[in-house]
Simulated scan of single mutants.
Amino acid sequence: MATEIITKEDLEAFEQRLFQKIEQVLGGNTPEPKKWLKSYQVKNMLRISPGTLQTLRVNGTLSYTKIGGILYYKQEDILKLLEGRQKGKQ
C-alpha cells in the first residue's frame, strides 16, 4: 500500500473546493470565482514551487499586490498566464 503525504496547502485547497460544492448544492447558484488569489492557491493552480512563483514575480511575468505581508494575485492574470502556456505548447 502506497503512502501519500498530505500537506496543509492540500487540505486548504480541498476545503475550498468542498465549500464551493456545498454552496452550489444549497444555493443552486454557480459561485462567482474569486477575483484575488493567495500564493498557495496560485501555486496549486499552476502546479509550481514557491521559488518559481517568486521568479514569476521578480521578472514581471506575474503582477501581485501585497497587503499586510500577504501577496495577492488577480485571477484574470493567472488565467492569461495559463492561456499563454497552452498557446506555447501547440
Score class of each variant (00 low, 15 high):
1 M>N: 10
2 A>T: 09
4 E>S: 13
5 I>P: 01
5 I>M: 06
7 T>V: 00
8 K>I: 15
8 K>L: 15
11 L>A: 15
11 L>S: 11
13 A>Y: 03
14 F>V: 13
15 E>Q: 09
18 L>G: 12
20 Q>E: 15
21 K>I: 11
22 I>P: 03
25 V>R: 12
26 L>S: 10
27 G>F: 09
27 G>C: 02
27 G>V: 02
28 G>R: 05
30 T>G: 05
31 P>K: 02
32 E>R: 12
33 P>M: 04
34 K>M: 03
34 K>R: 08
37 L>A: 07
41 Q>C: 04
43 K>F: 07
44 N>D: 14
44 N>K: 10
44 N>I: 04
45 M>I: 02
46 L>M: 06
48 I>M: 05
51 G>S: 15
52 T>L: 01
52 T>W: 01
55 T>D: 03
57 R>W: 01
57 R>A: 12
58 V>M: 04
61 T>L: 08
62 L>W: 15
63 S>F: 07
65 T>M: 07
66 K>R: 15
68 G>V: 04
71 L>C: 10
72 Y>P: 01
75 Q>W: 03
76 E>M: 04
76 E>T: 12
77 D>N: 14
78 I>S: 13
78 I>H: 10
80 K>L: 09
80 K>W: 05
82 L>H: 01
82 L>M: 13
83 E>S: 10
84 G>R: 11
85 R>A: 11
85 R>E: 14
86 Q>C: 04
87 K>T: 03
88 G>H: 04
89 K>D: 11
